[in-house]
Simulated scan of single mutants.
Amino acid sequence: MITILIRTLILYTFVLISVRIMGKGELSEMQPFELVVTLMIAELAALPMEDIRLPLINGIVAIITILFAQIIISYVNLKSEKARKIICGKPSLLINKGIINEKELRRLRINMNDLIEQLRIKDYPVIQDIEYAILETNGDLSIIPKSNKRPVTVEDVKANPPYEGLPVSLIIDGNINYDNLKKISLNISWLQEELKKQGINDPKEVLFSYIDETKNIFVQKKDKS
């Protein structure tokens, strides 16, 4: 039992490190080859955990090999447009100027029900409102609406809103972020005074707090239950 526990922890740590090396892109929408790599790493890690007769080093070497191959393929994709098309494929135009591309749907084996469902998910249930619908190489559906159907932007109404900036977290789950306080040139004394104004004597009582660009502070207390 102890042996299985130790082997599992070692492989878990190694797989976690491998995923970190692969990069943040692997954690979002994956390309086909990235999905293959992820599945293979999971399978290679599972084998030594299930069968303690298998040497642990075998699984680690196999994962390193797959990881090395993935890094090489990612680098080739980065440098070569031709290789990227071969490995990842090309985006597919499913709707062109409001007209459904039946030929492309048949080639990709996508039926109308699936297409309509994806359009509804993207908040475009009416096909006539869509100028282009593109199936990206990672499987996501990008929609470009017709000019008269796209959401109104600030630029459209010629407004000049104030700069909002990025909110800065001050307290998360009762823990003060001293680095963020330093970045915005504030200190713990200032924070304690602001909390007292809201009837809070201990930062441990705070679930989440942040400050925005205009120095407005948001504070939510923890649920006492």
Rank of each mutant, 00 (worst) to 15 (best):
residue 161 P to T: 09
residue 135 L to D: 01
residue 82 K to D: 05
residue 175 N to W: 00
residue 135 L to H: 04
residue 85 K to Q: 14
residue 212 D to K: 05
residue 201 N to F: 11
residue 185 S to D: 12
residue 19 V to W: 05
residue 78 L to I: 01
residue 100 I to H: 01
residue 179 D to W: 01
residue 146 K to A: 04
residue 209 S to L: 08
residue 153 T to W: 01
residue 99 I to Q: 14
residue 115 L to R: 06
residue 131 E to Y: 12
residue 105 L to T: 05
residue 92 S to R: 08
residue 119 L to Q: 07
residue 101 N to P: 01
residue 44 L to W: 01
residue 48 P to K: 05
residue 185 S to Q: 12
residue 139 G to T: 10
residue 167 P to A: 09
residue 45 A to P: 08
residue 207 L to H: 08
residue 32 P to E: 08
residue 105 L to M: 14
residue 28 S to Y: 06
residue 156 D to Y: 07
residue 106 R to F: 09
residue 54 L to E: 11
residue 225 S to V: 10
residue 103 K to Y: 07
residue 103 K to M: 08
residue 127 I to H: 06
residue 89 G to H: 04
residue 37 V to P: 00
residue 157 V to F: 06
residue 197 K to I: 03
residue 102 E to P: 00
residue 83 A to E: 04
residue 206 V to F: 04
residue 27 L to K: 10
residue 193 E to V: 05
residue 67 L to R: 02
residue 48 P to W: 06
residue 175 N to L: 10
residue 161 P to L: 12
residue 16 L to I: 13
residue 110 I to C: 04
residue 107 R to C: 00
residue 33 F to D: 03
residue 214 T to Y: 11
residue 142 S to C: 01
residue 74 S to Y: 00
residue 75 Y to H: 11
residue 130 I to M: 03
residue 178 Y to F: 13
residue 81 E to D: 10
residue 19 V to L: 15
residue 22 M to Y: 11
residue 77 N to E: 15
residue 85 K to F: 03
residue 214 T to H: 15
residue 134 I to M: 10
residue 62 A to M: 13
residue 172 I to L: 13
residue 113 N to L: 10
residue 177 N to T: 03
residue 168 V to L: 07
residue 169 S to W: 00
residue 96 N to R: 14
